[in-house]
């Protein structure tokens, strides 16, 4: 019996040697239990040690192995050879990012966008430091100095806190390709996650980025971000909830132009 094999077409790019990326084809033994990540490891161990890709946990937790598989952004560890066999699998780095080498993209811009939405709890003290004119009512702490949160309060933001920063949504989003300045699905959903947190008082400090032209208003609600998300975060919903809030604030700002300011 001849051994079953499967072909992989992988986009290769070595910035020190290549003028532009080109596909390399590898034929490897077919194993129905293998994920795409296992296949890449086989290629690196047995066929071409120069193949470069990011990976870590192998179980869809770390968000390192995002890549474009047959045109769809997916995690390598969650993609199985058996779902594509006997067809060739085409593997590319995430779209809308500069390629560093082979399947590794430069995430610098993504990290900057994540930081821009201040993805951490801003308590009442910090909120008043940022805007002394604003009166912020402190969230009461319990006897051991931490906050109590009701299940309903947790339920408001829990979904949006599941993001693993895999950047699949940035690869899926057509607006990212059209406007690289767009803050993007994951960062906007993360900002929304903190705005919805009962312990947080920082929404004013996030508004400038979230409600900017390059914030939620660059989104045309294609919705592919939510479809490819491996953690069911639904960034499209987060963005639309912020549009609704922004429209409300926009209207209110005429009625109360100085609300909260001196």
């Amino acid at each position: 019996m001849t051994e079953q094999t499967i072909k992989l077409e992988i986009l290769r790019y070595n910035p020190e040697a290549d003028n532009e990326p080109s596909f390399g084809t590898f034929e490897i033994p077919y194993n129905e239990a293998w994920s795409l990540l296992d296949a890449l490891e086989y290629i690196k161990d047995e066929l071409d040690s120069s193949l470069t890709y990011r990976w870590s946990c192998r179980m869809a937790v770390c968000g390192s192995c995002g890549m474009v598989v047959n045109g769809r952004p997916q995690l390598g560890c969650e993609t199985f050879l058996r779902d594509h066999y006997p067809n060739t699998i085409k593997v590319e780095p995430l779209a809308n990012f500069p390629i560093e080498k082979d399947l590794i993209v430069d995430a610098t811009g993504f990290i900057e966008k994540l930081e821009s939405v201040k993805p951490y709890i801003i308590d009442a003290v910090d909120a008043m430091k940022a805007n002394p004119a604003k009166k912020v009512k402190e969230t009461p702490k319990n006897e051991i100095g931490t906050y109590n949160q009701k299940p309903a309060e947790l339920g408001l933001f829990k979904q949006f806190s599941m993001c693993i920063n895999c950047m699949l949504c940035y690869s899926a989003c057509p607006q990212m390709g059209l406007n690289p300045m767009f803050t993007g699905p994951a960062a906007l959903a993360l900002g929304h996650r903190y705005n919805l947190d009962s312990r947080d008082h920082g929404s004013d400090e996030r508004t400038e980025v979230i409600q900017d032209k390059n914030g939620v208003w660059s989104c045309t609600f294609v919705g592919y971000c939510s479809e490819v998300c491996p953690k069911n975060v639904d960034p499209a919903a987060a963005i639309n909830q912020n549009k609704a809030q922004g429209a409300q604030d926009w209207a209110l700002s005429f009625l109360m132009p100085r609300k909260g300011e001196k």
Partner: peptide, 10 residues
């Protein structure tokens, strides 16, 4: 939420 927005480019 409206404050910083009012300050940023409308």
């Amino acid at each position: 939420m409206s404050m910083t927005q009012a300050k940023s480019a409308r």
